[in-house]
């Protein structure tokens, strides 16, 4: 009898201590989240539309950020009803490298890391050289996702191949599997690591980057969710990129904002995909470098002569 009551006492004590702990903890958290409410104090804010506004400090509330779990969930599901495709017009590229800069800024990449890279190409000894931007091809039959032992990289319903760096163990099997060399590894501390320390991971932009994990092009999935074109597409000054939804058969040029029929564009210009013989079914289409808008100014080592 005595034993029994003591056990009960311990039980209630433990439970009440636990409840008190939770209550106290949440109280602490609340006080952190609350912004100082001195009325009269005004601060200037830049809105997303580019206007500078003055707001009373008392009215400020922390913005609703999706939690990591929610972000991961919607990141895996994709944007319903879409099927993203990119068309790259090789005849327009002049190696301005604005796409690479915008991409590295958006995804917090070090200078040597590229989600998109502009390559200098020459197909055979006597053919004309050209510039070729090369992002991830977002294959419909991706070799990379199949080799991942922890299901960190995956294909979404809207066609994008993504990585969850909270799951990635850094084995680099996917780098070996990708025939397009689209993936990069964070060998060192990522760019601006101190600046973004403690920021919640965003799976759709793969930021902040994490040392010891993989990173790759993800068609700026976070921007697509906001209805914006990917960073590289909007940054291009020469009208190289077309981007859109294959389901509605429309692609929009990032520079001129002209919208055309996707099927007509690739049919008229004899578009092709990279290494289609591998059966990877890429989602990035290339228009051949015919009637180039800019002369080729790079230096290409002649690897075709023996």
């Amino acid at each position: 009898m005595e034993k029994n009551s003591r056990r009960n006492f311990m039980k209630t004590l433990g439970a009440s201590l636990g409840v008190a702990g939770i209550a106290g903890g949440s109280g602490l958290l609340n006080s952190c989240a609350r912004v100082e409410s001195n009325t009269g104090d005004k601060i200037k804010l830049l809105t997303s539309s580019g206007e500078l506004v003055e707001v009373d400090k008392a009215q400020l509330k922390p913005a609703d950020m999706p939690s990591l779990a929610e972000n991961q969930k919607r990141g895996r599901a994709g944007i319903p009803g879409k099927s993203w495709v990119m068309v790259i017009d090789l005849s327009k590229c002049r190696n301005a490298r604005e796409c690479m800069k915008a991409c590295q800024n958006h995804h917090q990449l070090r200078p040597e890391q590229h989600h998109i890279n502009v390559l200098q190409m020459q197909d055979a000894e006597h053919t004309a050289p050209y510039y070729m931007p090369k992002p991830c091809q977002h294959c419909d039959n991706p070799p990379c996702t199949k080799v991942c032992p922890v299901n960190a990289t995956f294909k979404r319903d809207d066609g994008i191949v993504l990585i969850d760096n909270e799951r990635c163990i850094g084995c680099r099997f996917c780098i070996a599997a990708c025939p397009y060399s689209a993936r990069v590894f964070n060998w060192f501390e990522p760019r601006d690591a101190e600046k973004y320390a403690g920021v919640t991971y965003n799976i759709e932009a793969n930021v902040p980057q994490k040392k010891g994990t993989i990173s790759k092009c993800l068609f700026s999935a976070d921007r697509l969710r906001d209805g914006k074109l990917p960073s590289c597409v909007s940054a291009c000054p020469n009208g190289v990129y077309w981007f859109g939804d294959r389901n509605e058969d429309a692609v929009t040029n990032g520079t001129t904002k002209e919208t055309v029929s996707f099927s007509e564009l690739i049919k008229k210009n004899a578009a092709y995909t990279l290494m289609e013989e591998l059966g990877t079914k890429p989602r990035v289409y290339y228009l051949p470098p015919k009637d180039r808008a800019f002369p080729f100014q790079g230096e290409i080592e002649n690897q075709h002569k023996s």
């Binding site: 199949k146 319903d157 389901n247």
Partner: peptide
């Protein structure tokens, strides 16, 4: 009507239906 193709079925080991 916009034709929406279902690429992924949940729980498929090889991540796309065709595979």
């Amino acid at each position: 009507l916009k034709q929406v193709q279902k690429l992924i079925r949940p729980g498929v080991l090889w991540s796309t239906n065709e595979n």
